[in-house]
Design a protein around this nucleic acid. Sequence first.
RNA 1: GGCCCUAUCGUCUAACGGUUAGGACGCCGGCUUUUCAAGCCGUUAAUCCGGGUUCGAUUCCCGGUAGGGUCACCA
Length: 465
Amino acid sequence: MKQEVVTRFAPSPTGFMHVGGVRTALFAWLYARKQGGTFILRIEDTDREREVAGSIEHIQESLKWLGLDWDQGPIKQSDRLPTYKTWAQRLIDKGYAYADPYTEEEVESFRKKAEEEKHPFLYRNHRPESPAAWDGTKPLRFKVPAIKRFEWNDLVRGTLSAGEEALDDFILIKSDGYPTYNFAHIVDDIEMGVTHVMRGEEFISSTPKFLSLYEALEAVPPQFATMPVILGPDGNKKLSKRDGAKDLLEYRAEGYLPEAMVNFLALLGWHPEGEQEIFSREELVQAFSIERVQKSGAKFDEQKLLWVNHEHIKKLSEEAFAKRLKDFIQQEVEPALVPLVKERAQTLGQAAQILKTEFDFLSGEPMYDKDLLLKGAKAEAADVQNYLTKAVELLSGVSDEGFTSEAVKEVVFPYATEVGRASVLWPMRIALSGKEKSPDPFTLAGLLGKKTTLERLNKALSVIK
RNA sequence: GGCCCUAUCGUCUAACGGUUAGGACGCCGGCUUUUCAAGCCGUUAAUCCGGGUUCGAUUCCCGGUAGGGUCACCA
């Protein structure tokens, strides 16, 4: 009988969605979807101090943006306190849990001493001989049943192991009545039937504790798949908020496409067979496999993210891109400009910027600068004047209705080629756009129409004089 | 300090004992109907070091080195 795959994403509500967490969520989601399994969203809100209001909405919005839908949840651990108490009681009954008799200060002094002696701190060295019954005012600690070496399989790393030092009597229930992560996540994974746990490297060293707890609870542990870390752009440090890591939704605000983000994140620490780089969400689901997840950490390279994003923009139809851009800038976009912006902008943010600063030639009255008009022209002012005059003359011969960019090109281009392209086309382009950077003069003329085109050319002529 | 993990171009990665070590991003250069963008073509660039095993190691083993993780009433 094949067991159905169940994965989960279990963030804590800190108000910040870092890309590392998102990538872990993505892999868990990809695997669940690929296997036709279940993906659970669970909120690990057992630390009341760190909880930030609105986090749960923030998490859900982030996942929705990326298109990572969940089948169950959000399940809040804070709603399940009685459950953890029940499971804790089982451990107490079996003699695998006891009340911690020490004060926080006392434990702290043990820790300090161990640190000074350069030994790892192990609470179990201070295990009380006959602890009082747990009344809920003191932390409840797990009594590790057997101090031994652990070895287990990781779907990404292969066989992993740890010595006895990794085992300790950790806290199950805090003195405020809330369970710790160490306890709650295991109870939940058991109750929710989680089969595959995707998680960060930082949990490798605590795995023996988890395994020990599974044994005490007589439950079968899930499969573990350790994800590689995502590192900051400089150095080898983990990408963190402190080093300027952005919240996921900041990328949305900058105009990245969710499918591009998913594509980029999937390729950070995973690679399918073959040399394809651009994938749709569905293609990723098809191609995904845990076996091809990378072991070593990967740097988050925004340059490549930009490229991936641009590739996805290029894949969009003009209509689709126009719709996204409109939604992004919250205003209508001149249809004629859409294809021009689409090939230039790597993000919707860039598109908005280009529209505002470079492609405003349709509306505004260009300001002319003689130096700029002549800058790229490989001819004297007097010659340029002659060329433009001739261009005006040629364009006057084109009918109003037939004044398309193709028609403009047809009459101007041969002439420009004859006398020197740059000498005609550069000043013409500047005359029409007023900008050093712009689309080509034919496109501009077609967009502006005959009347405006001629007006602008004449005005430029008067400036050159 | 203990325990643990990792190691191919600057970056993301391919090559699961035999390749001129491949691709992509970026960089640089060139081409294309002027600028910018796009497009096309091309150049540069890597197996951390030392031992084994083997006819043959990027690949397997051991040891270094480097980087990282962890040792919370945080997750």
